[in-house]
């Protein structure tokens, strides 16, 4: 298809230059007519040979026939995909007439043609990367803040859930019920757009960390509770039997044994978190997703989105790797 279009383009240019060069000397007129006949017969080599007969003009001679013949030759070469030869021919003209627009544009177009597809993608990448990297840093900041807040919140919620004190366990049940049961997007909207009506105005980053922190505390809370309750009941009894209090037993005996069991589901959650941070783009935060979206809307260039996908994949891959390592370390006492 591309080939056909370029052929048609060449033919049109050819016709246009023909009419232009008709104003030259009679010899040239005949030469160009012969050339077009040869081209019509498909004898491109013959046409090229004829065109090459037009000599470079002397100082006082007219440039038209020479430029026309060389540009015609360049177009033939280009149509034959011999862009090297086409380029040399263009440069032949440019050497004598550096200001010739036709030759200059043609050379530029040839240069672009010579660039492979990945070159365009690469230049887009170079252009988009700074903005995306800035966005990715913000995404990472959100992830790290949430990773600091939510395990603590999750532990509190988990301990509250298994507490025998009814109001505490009821409250923690409610927290989990609410934050797992409503969309994160809605929670973010409520915190960022809703709280100001109660007189609490938060910066986007604060609102985002609070929203993500609460949501992930609820999820991690259930994971931690499951891990705690999966530890053999005998461990608690043995701890109590040597005189430990409940909190000592939790801190020294039960919770340390949950680490290994926690790693796979918690790793899962944190990978989900990396992607969930994309939702805070809706509350005026420019993180990776928003940055990519802005670039896409400015340049209508899909490369921005593809790059964002690659950055997300890189981040999640790194996290997966780290969590595998931590899981191995956490369970080292089980290795025989």
């Amino acid at each position: 298809m591309k080939y056909l279009i370029s052929r048609a383009f060449v033919a049109l240019l050819f016709l246009w230059t023909m009419t232009g060069s008709c104003l030259g000397a009679e010899d040239y007129e005949q030469l160009f007519r012969q050339t077009s006949d040869l081209m019509a017969q498909g004898d491109l080599d013959g046409a090229l040979a004829l065109l090459k007969q037009v000599p470079a003009p002397k100082a006082d001679e007219e440039a038209g026939p020479f430029v026309s013949s060389r540009m015609q030759a360049a177009r033939i070469y280009a149509s034959q995909k011999a862009s090297d030869k086409a380029m040399t021919t263009c440069q032949e003209v440019l050497k004598l007439f550096p200001d010739n627009n036709e030759a200059r544009n043609f050379a530029a177009a040839l240069k672009d043609l010579q660039k492979p597809g990945w070159h365009t993608a690469l230049s887009d990448t170079v252009r988009f990367l700074p903005a995306l990297a800035k966005g990715a840093l913000m995404t990472l900041l959100l992830v790290f803040c949430t990773m600091l807040v939510s395990p603590l919140g999750g532990l509190l919620v988990a301990l509250g859930r298994i507490s025998t004190i009814k109001p505490i366990s009821g409250f923690c049940w409610f927290i989990i019920w609410f934050f797992r049961g409503t969309p994160l997007l809605l929670q973010l909207f409520f915190i960022y757009y809703g709280l100001p009506s109660l007189g609490i105005t938060l910066k986007p980053l604060t609102a985002a960390v609070i929203g993500l922190g609460l949501n992930y505390s609820a999820y991690l809370g259930e994971i931690i509770r499951g891990a705690i309750q999966s530890i053999d009941h005998g461990q608690m009894e043995a701890a109590k039997a040597i005189g430990m209090s409940y909190s000592q037993a939790m801190r020294r005996v039960i919770i340390p044994q949950t680490y290994k069991r926690l790693m796979p589901p918690v790793g899962n959650e944190f990978i989900a978190l990396i992607k969930d941070t994309a939702l805070v783009s809706t509350i005026a935060m420019v993180e990776l997703m928003r940055a990519a979206d802005q670039l896409f809307n400015t340049y209508f260039n899909i490369t921005a989105l593809a790059l964002a996908a690659v950055i997300y994949l890189v981040l999640t891959t790194i996290f997966t790797f780290i969590f595998e390592k931590i899981e191995y370390r956490a369970g080292i006492y089980e290795h025989r």
């Binding site: 053999d232 461990q235 043995a238 039997a241 006492y333």
Partner: peptide
Amino acid sequence: ISALRAEIGMVFQHFHLFPHM
């Protein structure tokens, strides 16, 4: 209760050693 347990040693059928220590 913890203070009393600290004065009474107990050994279980299934040991219940702390596996992470």
